[in-house]
Design a protein around this nucleic acid. Structure first.
Lengths: 129, 129
DNA sequence: GGTGAATCTGACATTGATGTCAGATTTCGA
DNA sequence: TCGAAATCTGACATCAATGTCAGATTCACC
């Protein structure tokens, strides 16, 4: 599919999609005229990339990580090097700390909201993390 | 206390502390010569500010939020306006989405780590959120 | 009073993903 | 084949917190 459709279906701007390709996060064929032609699976990949960005990973690390993921059609293309495993473990720890921080911050907001609105904040599901 | 001690005790750079003051997040007296003199409670406040930054709130919103917090010595100085409550509720929703995303990203990392190392990722405590 | 450490202000740089714009080229239906 | 829509490349801008540096001033202690 072309870049416009991919942008529409993922909600990610064309600008960012081109950036992802340049960073090696996304592969695309080219038409004779030079236009990008993305495979169907690019949709899921873009969504995944966005999630990893949201988790604070940099594009370089995502580029290393992606080939080590279990593909829809089978196992990973590559196996993570020990160095990468170490780095990803650090990232995971960082994410865990971030989650803990976010939960605390949410508590702060809840308190202010509750104080101001006079009624308790919604007692959420508190999903098992 | 002076800015150097505050920086040391909070782990936040002097540069950032001055920035916080300029943004109205932090109040400091001044010595006759113009040096900042922070109260003891500035320590907790700086830590709180950092948490809110980590949660993705911008300094302007934090500046609105802080006066509405329950102080160590009593109730809040101000009561949040309905507009602020609305905005903070949106922030909380955003934080909730962010937490959900982080948990998913952590799952991605766990999978790669597990695949590469051959043994399962540590089954963490999964604290009640 | 002198001196070294601490602090002050103000300016400019950095980061990294994304926005935006201009001009050229390709695509594809009519 | 014509023309409008889509896409291309490359460059420059943006955001917001923080780093860094220079030169001036103040503080605290001897």
């Amino acid at each position: 599919m072309r870049i416009g459709e991919l942008a529409r279906r993922t909600g990610v701007s064309e600008r960012s999609l081109r950036y992802y390709e340049k960073q090696g996060l996304l592969a695309a064929d080219r038409t004779l005229g030079g236009h990008r032609d993305f495979p169907e699976r690019a949709v899921d990949r873009v969504i995944l990339i966005q999630e990893l960005f949201a988790a604070g990973l940099h594009s370089a690390k995502i580029a290393e990580l992606l080939p080590c993921m279990r593909d829809a059609d089978g196992g990973p293309n590559e196996v993570a090097t020990p160095r990468l495993v170490t780095e990803l473990t650090e990232e995971r720890d960082r994410i865990n700390r971030m989650i803990a921080d976010l939960i605390r911050s949410r508590g702060v907001l809840d308190e202010v909201i509750e104080t101001a609105s006079g009624r308790p904040a919604p007692d959420e599901e508190h999903h098992h993390a």
